[in-house]
Design a protein around this nucleic acid. Structure first.
Lengths: 225, 225
DNA sequence: TTTCCCTAGATTGCATACAAATTCGTTCTG
DNA sequence: CAGAACGAATTTGTATGCAATCTAGGGAAA
């Protein structure tokens, strides 16, 4: 098995799919910063492919809102105005509220128990001050909330919004005491969901995200313009 | 000015943009039916361009959710499962509720007056049974609700969802008496917004869309599986 | 010195060419 | 006759080439 084609690499698909995944990841994780130029030739060289798949990947990323494109100029990592950023955070609050509300009504027993267990198990990370690991737990926590709503389209909308927001809330848990507060806020949500209180769950989720927005460090306009 | 290039035609952009607009329109209006095959060569011939822009347009439409794409097989007009369709309608209800709620809180005086005027002026269309025209008024009515929320990202989400839903609710106003009921439901929303009652506006909007979902004729799986 | 304009290089947009994959018809076999 | 298997034709995926557009730098004029 010395000579396997690029195509056969685990979980691969077409070249474009790979590029989209790779670049989306780089943008979301911050390896590429908002405003950064993405010229097709460099990308083609970097990924060892021709410009054709690069262009298709950029177009898809553009449609996803992760990169900005204008005719006859290089694509750039999406960089939004402060007003738009605010609208995304607000939308996120609303969407999370919906998910929490629906989760309170629709989660199966197993989902509820799983959520509670995950939440409880993150307590020790708070005490240990394990930023990175708590962040991972946090992501999983919210993911479960989205899935728990049992609505595929809402899941898509919230996931998409979260991805676009990611580059702008990197240092979320750097603020002192934020971890413990986050845990407490999750606790309110979990409690409400466990007892099937949709209204309380929705309100708690809305407030939680709203707080995160405020706590988030906002990178405005990093490069170019 | 005899020899103007394709590019210079009014409101045009790059070839791909034109194709995306044209095809999105065809899909949304039903000129292309869900499930229909979209092979690149035919499209290229039809639009008098090479396959390259066609492929980019298809990829963008795919990202928008208007066409389904799988590696090494033709793209098709998006055709969703009944479960997914249901989830889109539910999402639409939630999103419209948010917009109505925020509109009740945030619309300017002018926006409120404009909405009310538009609504009142559609009354005569109901009496006349003018389906087509009422449908246009209806579209405009909802558009204003979305813009009235003063949140660009939510506007984007709701617009996108509406577009994906369009092919599946074509015959919305064909049902007898639906026009009058729609008007009455709009009336409740408008009244709530005019008096700034966010909760009532949200509930009325949610109920309105939920009814439309039920009233909608669902085309399931038109062509090809 | 500053500003404007022009040209050369660089970069994107689209077309064409070729490779890989799929599909469908035909043939061969049981 | 049914079904598997092979192969040609169709269709998608990627590379390359050329035209159109943009950008940057230098030189001329104010």
């Amino acid at each position: 098995m010395n000579q396997l084609k690029r195509r056969q690499v685990v979980r691969a698909g077409t070249t474009v799919e790979q590029m989209v995944r790779a670049m989306a990841d780089m943008i979301v994780t911050g390896a590429l910063l908002p405003g950064e130029k993405l010229d097709e030739i460099s990308l083609a060289a970097r990924f060892q492919v021709s410009r054709t798949p690069v262009r298709e990947a950029l177009r898809e990323l553009g449609a996803m809102g992760l990169v900005d494109r204008e005719p006859n100029r290089s694509a750039t990592v999406a960089n939004v105005t402060e007003a738009y950023l605010h609208s995304m955070f607000e939308a996120m609050s609303e969407l999370e509220a919906i998910c929490a509300r629906l989760s309170a009504e629709r989660m199966t027993i197993d989902e509820r128990r799983g959520l509670e267990f995950l939440h409880r198990s993150s307590a020790k990370l708070v005490h240990a001050g394990a930023n990175e690991e708590y962040a991972a737990h946090n992501t999983e926590f919210h993911s479960r909330l989205y899935r728990g709503a049992h609505n595929d389209h809402i899941y898509e909308l919230v996931t998409q919004t979260r991805a676009r927001l990611a580059p702008f809330r990197r240092a979320q848990f750097r603020l002192p005491g934020r971890l413990a507060k986050s845990y407490d806020e999750h606790d309110v949500i979990v409690t409400a969901i466990m007892r099937g209180d949709a209204v309380a769950a929705g309100q708690a989720a809305y407030a939680h995200v709203a707080i995160v927005s405020d706590a988030s460090v906002v990178f405005a306009t990093v490069k170019g313009e």
